[in-house]
Structures are given as structure tokens and as C-alpha cells.
Design a protein around this nucleic acid. Structure first.
Ligand code: ZN
Ligand code: ZN
Ligand code: ZN
Ligand code: ZN
Lengths: 159, 159
DNA sequence: ATAAACCTTGGAGTTTAATCTAAGGTCAAG
DNA sequence: CTTGACCTTAGATTAAACTCCAAGGTTTAT
């Protein structure tokens, strides 16, 4: 039997997190001591590890609640159900990745267009890009070139 | 001069969003009508577009607040400052992408290991993976093969 | 026996970006 | 002069997953 702090340390989470999981129905200690301390057994610890593994692949606690309800009643669920949860998560993750890739490309383009030097930002290509309606930064056209070598350094990749 | 609903429609945001931006110091209407209605001019609209462009490349409103304070006082800032904000955002985005890529790979592996059929989840490879301490799913070893052709279909890529 | 380290509870705070509600004032059309 | 669309305010709510707090009770070691 583990007390809350022991299980927390064992699984590298905080005691607060275990209380939070309990409050939200993910994991309750199987017993209490006479003085009211939570007592977790090995099976509780296994359940916690299940939760943490599911978190490690990106599931939210709400989704983990679903997974746990399947896990505890496997024979009444099909592989299709389980795979459905995984595939739906996968789709969400892919969507998010593609949004972030979009950000990544845009930010990289902004970064590449700016000399990053100590010169005044009055003609900074980044600010100019955010001011104008184009989301394209044309490195060869920009009005910003306080320093020839810097300019060349930053713009050579685009001609 | 635009009333709040007009500017909202023009820029495809909700009036609530504009009030929210005002409350948080991002964008205030340059005047009010006699009856207290917000009135935005062309320069307010430009500022809103700046905000929306910055959002479109992934900046949070707090970061946009910083960008705006630079934008309004360009000569007292250097390219280095602006590029610093972009690069720091870029680093955050890259970090998030790499976390999501990790999720993506794990989820794909889980999905690939499961037949996804109508059979009972009692021996589902996904659940087994979440129960065990390995984060590796060994397709050729798993205990789950209710249906030979399905099994082959899902596992052929790994031998 | 007393200090340190642990535990209990309920509830508030954090972050982000809105979104919604209630209760009421304004404006243009018919 | 009334209907409907629009506007005002302050404040509550949402999602996610904790994290922290106060005020007190328990255990353990010295
Ligand atoms: Zn520069
Ligand atoms: Zn610059
Ligand atoms: Zn199966
Ligand atoms: Zn399965």
C-alpha cells in the first residue's frame, strides 16, 4: 500500500495530481487508513501507469476516461471501438501539426527576411510584412538594407 | 468610421472579440458616437489587421501586445528585437511540433497494431500496449489474432 | 514531547481567447 | 410608435490540467 506521496514519487507526478485525478473520476485509492489517508494498492498503481502512458501518446484526460471504461469492460467493446479512439486522436494530432507547420513556415520566412541587427526597426521586413496584406515576404524587394553584407547573408537563399 | 459590427464583419471577427481586444489593450476605437457607440477609423482597422496577421502566424495576444508596442515606436527598437520575438516564437512552435510528432508516431504505431475489427477488445494490442511498460508495440509478438487475414493485413508491413 | 514531514478538505488561481448573458439604450424603417 | 437590428456594460462561463492555499490533523524520528 502506498500513501499518496509515495505513489506520486514512484510515478513522478505530484500528490496534487493524484487528488485531481480522483476528483475527476480517473483514479481513486482502493482504501483509506484509519486517519483518512489515501491508500493505493498495486492495481491502483497499474491504473495510474495506464493513465500516464495514455497521456504520453497525447490523449486528454476525458479521452483517457473513455479508454479506462473500455479497459475495465473489454469484452463488451470491439477492437473497432479502441482503434476508433486512436484514429480520431491521430486525426486531431495531424490537424494540429499541420496548423503548426503553417506557423513554422510563416515564422521562418519572417525570420529569414530580417537582418536581426542592431539597426532601427523602422524598415524591419517583419513589421512591414505584418503591416501589409500580403502574407508573402519578398526578400529581394524589401526596403530594408542598412547593411549590404547582412542583406546578402539573409537573402542569398532566395536569389 | 465603422461601428463595432461593421468592423467585425469587415475583418471576419465577432464584435465580442473587438470588445475583448479593447479590454485587453490591443485595440481601442479612436472615438465614440454621442450615444456611446464605438467608432473605428481606417487606422484602427489597420491595427486590427496587424493583430490578425500576427495571430495567423501563431503569436498569442500577449506577444502581439509586444509587437504592437514596437510597431508604434519603431525607431526605438532594433531589428534584433523584432527578430528575437519571431525566433523565440519559432522555437516554441518547433518544440510543440516535435511533441506532436512524437504523439503522431506513437498513435500511428498503436493504430497499425490493431485490427480494428468487430472482435472483442479482450486481446486488443492497443490496450495491451497501454497496460504494459513498453512503449514499443511489437506487432509480430502480440497475442491478438482473432482473424488471420486481418492480422496479416495489419502486420505485413513489419514482417 | 516536539519538530519535521506528511496528510486532510474545500476552494481559489492559472493560462488563452474568447463567448455568452442579462438588462437595458439607440436607431432606421414602415 | 413600434419592431428589429444594433449597441452599451459588467460579469459569468468555457476548455484543460493542474497548482496552490489555508487551516488543521497524523506520523515519525530524535
Ligand atoms: Zn534589419
Ligand atoms: Zn528586421
Ligand atoms: Zn483486433
Ligand atoms: Zn485492437
Amino acid at each position: 500500500m502506498y500513501r499518496i506521496g509515495e505513489l506520486a514519487k514512484l510515478c513522478e507526478v505530484k500528490a496534487d495530481t493524484l487528488r485531481f485525478y480522483e476528483k475527476h473520476g480517473l483514479l481513486a485509492p482502493s482504501s483509506r487508513s484509519d486517519s483518512g489517508y489515501r491508500l493505493y494498492n498495486e492495481s491502483d498503481a497499474e491504473r495510474l501507469r495506464f493513465i500516464l502512458r495514455a497521456k504520453a501518446v497525447g490523449f486528454t484526460l476525458a479521452e483517457i476516461t473513455e479508454l479506462l471504461s473500455i479497459e475495465l469492460d473489454k469484452s463488451n467493446w470491439a477492437c473497432a471501438d479502441v482503434k476508433g479512439l486512436v484514429d480520431s486522436k491521430l486525426a486531431q494530432v495531424n490537424e494540429k501539426i499541420s496548423e503548426l507547420n503553417h506557423f513554422q513556415v510563416s515564422l521562418q520566412r519572417l525570420s529569414d527576411a530580417c537582418c536581426g541587427g542592431p539597426e532601427s526597426a523602422e524598415h524591419c521586413s517583419i513589421l512591414e510584412a505584418l503591416e501589409s496584406n500580403t502574407d508573402n515576404i519578398k526578400c529581394e524587394n524589401h526596403a530594408h538594407h542598412h547593411d549590404k553584407s547582412q542583406y546578402t547573408k539573409n537573402c542569398q537563399s532566395k536569389g
